[in-house]
Design a protein around this nucleic acid. Sequence first.
DNA 1: TTGACATATTCCTATATGGGAATATACTGA
DNA 2: TCAGTATATTCCCATATAGGAATATGTCAA
Lengths: 110, 110
Amino acid sequence: MPRAATTSDVFNAIAETSRRSILAYLAERERPVNDVCADLNLPQPSVSKHLKVLREVGLVQTRREGRQVFYRTNASALRPVHEWSSLFERYWLRQLTRVKERAERGAGIR
Amino acid sequence: MPRAATTSDVFNAIAETSRRSILAYLAERERPVNDVCADLNLPQPSVSKHLKVLREVGLVQTRREGRQVFYRTNASALRPVHEWSSLFERYWLRQLTRVKERAERGAGIR
DNA sequence: TTGACATATTCCTATATGGGAATATACTGA
DNA sequence: TCAGTATATTCCCATATAGGAATATGTCAA
């Protein structure tokens, strides 16, 4: 079996570096496809394909205005990622505490 | 060009559902491979392969004890994911505020 | 209607994958 | 040394890419 489709969920969609760049770029305000290409220095067909993937998983939304199509990031679709990674926060905080304690003990002993 | 390797970075490694399950399972405490297989109901070769991917990107660490190899999640390797998704927090919070305001205005008018 | 701009789609291809099955390796205890 | 347990690796394969190039679709303005 191959890898799950990029459109199967948000985690697969954001695995690609360019798509993460696009999401960050479109978070502040909506932009036409052309701006994405120009500002991120990516070929237009590539951008259109990435945007399609992002749209299919709900990570971007669109609005047509004449010839242009404006895309914007739908930030809330990233909440599952944020929440999932948050599950691990206590563990790395605990880890940091341990490292710190060890360092302090070490400093005291020596 | 195919998709980037699953071992190319943390984002690609966690795209797979089973690997996310394994990370959650190994976050609390270290476990031998067999426990992962049994508790997550996954075939052993599959688990070994997933663990290899996770280890290559630093998401798990190992300790050998006799015949067994204990794996544990290295939570801090997930910080980049958490931090990246945090960039979007202000946007979905803003969005929620807007929705709320709109609802309240609507309620007042009607 | 036609030309020009904006975006989307189609074709093509090399490649990494995840699963299943079989097998190899590593280590222990008798 | 050998059997047995624990884990890792190898083989095989169907499949979904991402990129580049070419082309199609859509929309406006004159």
